[in-house]
């Protein structure tokens, strides 16, 4: 196997990498933030005692947890505008799948975090005369948030990696930039190796952070 590695191809268009990086990070932050918001709202709905609320939300969550993200992205991009007969800007349609995906997983993390708090905490707080809302704000949420943090960070790491799927709908993220470069230079091995390393450099510190949060023993 006499392959001559030539990493010169990688540095051919630094601007392409830069904008790919900006798009990847931009989509990650935006879809994580929006997904978290959806997750908190849906998570609260899942905790509700009213089936009118829990049933549809649970359906939404299961749908997005149990279908491939790639299909969700393609569906939102191509099928949704047709289905609702509304023109949705391409950049927005591309991000909807990622957002709902993050929302579905966040909803479960939120629900699980709240439910992991011992019933005794509710009882003790109610026993000193606190209202349900106060119990949630003062006692349950502060404890649950700390427990939710590591899984949220983990999910965010996955989310950042998953943005690479956006390249299939021509979003110019890191992955898409790499594909352009490959088609121009015919150096896929060097370029994808470098791209992998780039993702690693971004995500390794995040993973470290998640580990540190998990080890925190102050609750």
């Amino acid at each position: 196997m006499g392959y001559n590695w030539d990493f010169g191809a990688v540095t051919l268009h630094p601007g392409l990498w830069f904008w790919g990086f900006v798009v990847t990070i931009g989509y990650s932050i935006a879809t994580i933030a929006a997904g978290l918001l959806i997750g908190v709202v849906c998570g609260m709905a899942l905790l509700s005692r009213h089936r009118i609320l829990t049933a549809p939300v649970s359906g939404f969550v299961q749908l997005f947890r149990c279908t491939p993200l790639l299909i969700q992205i393609i569906w939102f991009y191509y099928a949704l505008p047709v289905a609702v007969n509304v023109s949705i800007p391409a950049w927005l349609a591309a991000g909807l799948g990622l957002t709902c995906y993050m929302g579905a997983f966040s909803a479960e993390i939120f629900r699980g975090g709240i439910q992991s708090i011992d019933r005794g905490q509710w009882q003790a707080a109610r026993a000193i005369g606190m209202m349900p809302r106060q119990v949630m704000q003062r006692i349950v949420l502060p404890q649950a948030t700390r427990r939710m943090l590591p899984p949220f960070v983990n999910q965010s790491v996955l989310q950042l990696k998953n943005t690479s799927l956006l390249s299939v709908v021509a979003v110019p993220d890191l992955m898409y930039s790499a594909q352009i470069l490959v088609s121009e230079t015919f150096r896929p091995l060097e370029i994808y190796t470098s791209l992998g390393l780039a993702y690693f450099v971004i995500l390794y510190p995040m993973q470290k952070l998640a580990k540190r949060l998990e080890r925190r023993d102050d609750i």
């Binding site: 005794g120 109610r126 000193i128 005369g129 404890q143």
Partner: peptide
């Protein structure tokens, strides 16, 4: 009503945070 009736539990249930 509960605010006027103190309760102490077997498992303490102190607020850990």
């Amino acid at each position: 009503f509960r605010a006027r009736v103190g309760m102490v539990f077997q498992q303490f249930h102190l607020f850990p945070h």
